[in-house]
Amino acid sequence: MKPQTAIVDIHGKYKVYTERYRSHAAEKTIILVNGAFSTTACFAQTVRYLQPRFNVVLYDQPYAGQSKPHNRHSQPISKEDESEILLELIERVAADHVLSFSWGGAATLLALAQRPPRIEKAVISSFAARINQPMRDYLERGLNCLQACDRIKVGRLINTTIGKHLPSLFKRYNLRHVSSLAEHEYRQMHFHINEVLTQDTPCYTDCAAAIDIPLLFINGEWDEYTSTGDARLFAGHARQCQFRTIQNAGHFLDLEHKVAWDDTQQALLGFLQPASSLARPNGARPLDSRHRHAASDRVVTVRRAAT
Rank of each mutant, 00 (worst) to 15 (best):
Y63A: 13
I30P: 02
H73L: 02
P69H: 02
R48I: 08
H24W: 03
C42F: 12
A41R: 13
H70F: 15
C42V: 15
T39I: 00
Y63L: 07
H24A: 14
Q66L: 15
Y49D: 10
E84K: 10
V33I: 15
A26S: 12
S74Y: 02
E80W: 10
P62C: 05
R48L: 14
P76K: 10
Y63M: 09
D81M: 08
V47L: 01
N55E: 12
I77E: 04
I31V: 12
F43A: 01
F37M: 13
H73W: 04
R48Y: 04
T18G: 10
R20V: 15
P76A: 11
I31P: 03
Q66G: 02
H24S: 14
R48M: 12
C42G: 01
E84P: 00
S83Q: 08
V57W: 07
Y63T: 10
A36F: 08
H24F: 05
A44Y: 02
I85N: 04
H24L: 07
Q51M: 09
Y59N: 06
S23P: 08
I31Y: 02
E80Q: 15
T39W: 00
C42A: 08
E82L: 15
R22C: 05
E84L: 04
Y21G: 12
D60A: 02
S23L: 13
T39P: 05
Q66K: 15
N55F: 10
S78V: 13
G65C: 10
A64S: 09
H24G: 04
Q61N: 12
S67W: 05
C42M: 15
V47N: 04
V33A: 03
L58E: 09
I30D: 05
L58V: 11
N71S: 00
V47S: 03
E19S: 08
Y21T: 13
A44N: 05
N55S: 12
F43E: 00
R22V: 12
D81E: 14
F54R: 06
R72H: 08
D81A: 11
Q75P: 01
A36S: 15
L58S: 11
D60F: 00
L58C: 09
I31E: 01
Y59L: 08
T46I: 13
Q66I: 01
A64V: 01
Y63I: 07
S83M: 13
A36E: 04
L50D: 06
F37L: 14
V33Y: 02
Q51E: 14
K28A: 15
C42P: 00
I85G: 07
Q75W: 04
S74G: 11
P76L: 06
Y49M: 06
I77T: 09
T29H: 06
Q51C: 12
F54Q: 06
V56K: 08
K79A: 12
T29Q: 09
G35K: 10
D81V: 12
R22A: 13
R20F: 14
S78I: 11
K68R: 12
I31Q: 03
V56F: 07
T39K: 00
T40H: 09
D60G: 08
E27F: 04
S74V: 01
G65H: 13
A64L: 02
E84F: 03
T46M: 13
I31W: 03
V57R: 09
Y63W: 09
Y59G: 10
T39R: 00
Y59S: 07
S38L: 04
V33T: 10
A64M: 02
R22N: 08
Q45H: 00
T40K: 04
Y63H: 14
I85W: 05
A64N: 07
Q45G: 00
